[in-house]
Structure formats: structure tokens, C-alpha cells
Amino acid sequence: MSAVEIQIGGLGGQGVILAGMVIGRGLVLYDGYHVSLTQSFGPEARGSACSAQLVVSREPVLYPYVTNPHILVTLSQEAYRRFVPSLRPGGTLIVEEDLVRTSPLPDAVVLYRVPATRLAEALGRRLVMNMVLVGFFAAVVGLPHPDSARRAIRDSVPAGTETLNLAAFEQGYDFGLKQLAGSPVHASP
């Protein structure tokens, strides 16, 4: 397998980096992949554009930057606007459905929408939106293996919040499986 490029874009404070961390950790520690995770930030700690980028491969990763993601996740309109043009033809796009309004996309793009914030709010904590997203990602992309993701969540989140975060993961994962059971939403109208 050649490298798969994944990019998750959003705003500081949305847990974008932690989501990337959980996906990467699951892939590296439990699924046996090589992953390079890089991050980019604006100057502010909160509210500015940020993104996590993962290059996933069976071989050691040489070039660590994502240039044309195979899989793009956007959690803000700003991230959508910035990153969608670089999405690879035939790539997968996942958007937070309440936060991102999509525009017409090339035919071959596979689009998924997930109401991650609402699903998290249903659990009582909007903060775990990122783990809902990880669950959804694991379901529709197939990476990492859900058990690997669950273990990576336990490794990654603050002590005492494991149950809540895992519940969020399951919400997103189930939602993803249901979407897969239907047919993915194709981008073109």
C-alpha cells in the first residue's frame, strides 16, 4: 500500500489535534502502521484555524506533510474553504454537518456528513465532539480498527474521562455504520 494522506481541519479548541492523535496512535500502536502526524496552528491558542495531518503507510514515512489528502475532515467552514481544493480526486470528505455548508464538489468525491456536535450534546458534553468524529471516521474509513481506536482513546484522554469519550466514540461509530448501510452521499447534486 502506498501512503494514505489524512487531514483533519477545524478550529482551535475543537479537539482536532487529539482526534488526529487518537487515529494515529490506534494505527501505530495497535494496527501496525507507520504514521507521521504533524499539526499546524494559527498564532492563537483558541479559535484560530488548526489542522492535524497524518501520513499513513506500511513503510516508514519519508515526506511527512500532507499535500493532497485522500481523506479530508473539516469541522469548520474556514477549514472547508481552505482545504477542500487540495482534496485528491476520488477522495473522501467528511464534514461536521451543522458547522460546514458544502459547495458543489467534483463527481468522484465521496461525501459524508456527521452531526458530531449534536451527537456529543446528546451525551451531555459538546466537548467530546472530536471522539464522535473519530468513531464516525473509524466506521466509514475503516481506519483504525475500532478496537484499536478504543484502546487509543483510553491511552490518550485525561484520566477520568475515558467512559465519556468512549461513549462518544460509540455514538459516532454507530452513526457511521448506519450511513454505510445506506449509501454514501455523493457530492454532485
Binding site: 492523535m21 501505530v28 500502536l29 504514521v35 507521521s36 502526524l37 504533524t38 499539526q39 511527512p64
Partner: peptide, 9 residues
């Protein structure tokens, strides 16, 4: 900076 901030195995 890249090596410092890049996460890997």
C-alpha cells in the same frame, strides 16, 4: 520544528 512537533512511533 518538524522533527520536534511530528508524532510517530
Amino acid at each position: 520544528e518538524i522533527v520536534g512537533h511530528m508524532t510517530e512511533r
